[in-house]
């Protein structure tokens, strides 16, 4: 009961989505679309799990006055204020929620990710050291893309003696070729491989072979 019914629900829901892909009848298509709408609603509720976990961890820290409790209190206050303001007064442009997004969340997000620009330099040094053939290819591809895709690159290339004069667009062409041929081939191989892996995992779930998502709670 505790595991059999969920396994049947998984199988039937998945099977219906596969059937709907091949059966173009409006009744099937409409019901499949309806079910996708249901899924969106349930997924919205699952946000509660993540938020609940976040609150549990940080509330415990505040209650026990553990080191860094002040920061956890700030986190909980920001979460409550943003969620309450957005839920009660709306999320449209011109609201307090929008103002907080523009002046707190967006600057923090941009600053946090731009911080990586400093650390990526040392990471690049470690990754790009030309120790073998493969690392050299990685280095060359990254350098060609970084130089070729910014205005400074072609400008510097044109200033190079002899090469710049004879082949002024060679850097642009090389960058485009790297993107179109070897990069596309590599990305495509990864995409096909990952898709085949995802499909086989999905089939394992539908057939009840993979059950790790049912580990919550006991029972059989």
């Amino acid at each position: 009961m505790k595991k059999t019914v969920p396994l049947i629900i998984t199988f039937l829901a998945g099977l219906y989505m596969i059937v709907a892909y091949f059966v173009p009848h409006p009744a099937v298509a409409n019901s499949a679309q309806q079910m996708q709408g249901w899924e969106i609603i349930i997924v919205a509720f699952t946000l509660v799990l993540g938020i609940g976990n976040l609150v549990q961890v940080h509330y415990g820290k505040v209650r026990g006055r553990r080191p860094g409790w002040f920061h956890s209190a700030a986190l909980l206050a920001c979460l409550a204020v943003m969620a309450a303001i957005g839920t009660v007064w709306g999320v449209a442009e011109g609201t307090v929620y929008y103002w907080l997004y523009d002046n707190v969340m967006a600057p923090l997000s941009a600053a946090m990710f731009s911080l990586l620009a400093f650390f990526i330099a040392s990471a690049a040094y470690r990754a790009f050291r030309a120790r073998n053939k493969e690392a050299t290819l990685l280095l060359l591809a990254a350098v060609v893309i970084m130089i070729g895709r910014v205005p400074l690159g072609p400008w510097l290339w044109a200033k190079l003696p002899w090469v710049g004069g004879h082949w002024p667009h060679a850097l642009d062409q090389l960058t485009q070729w790297v993107m179109d041929v070897p990069n596309t081939a590599g990305q495509r191989g990864i995409k096909i491989g990952a898709a085949l892996g995802a499909v086989s995992m999905a089939l394992r779930m539908l057939l009840g072979i993979e059950r790790s998502y049912l580990t919550t709670g006991g029972g059989s």
Partner: peptide, 22 residues
């Protein structure tokens, strides 16, 4: 354990869509 019911619906839908879309 009741969490398994909504989870199984979402997982089933996701798996079905993954098979065809991917």
């Amino acid at each position: 354990w009741l969490l398994r019911y909504p989870l199984s619906f979402v997982v089933g839908m996701g798996a079905g869509l993954t098979v065809t879309a991917m």
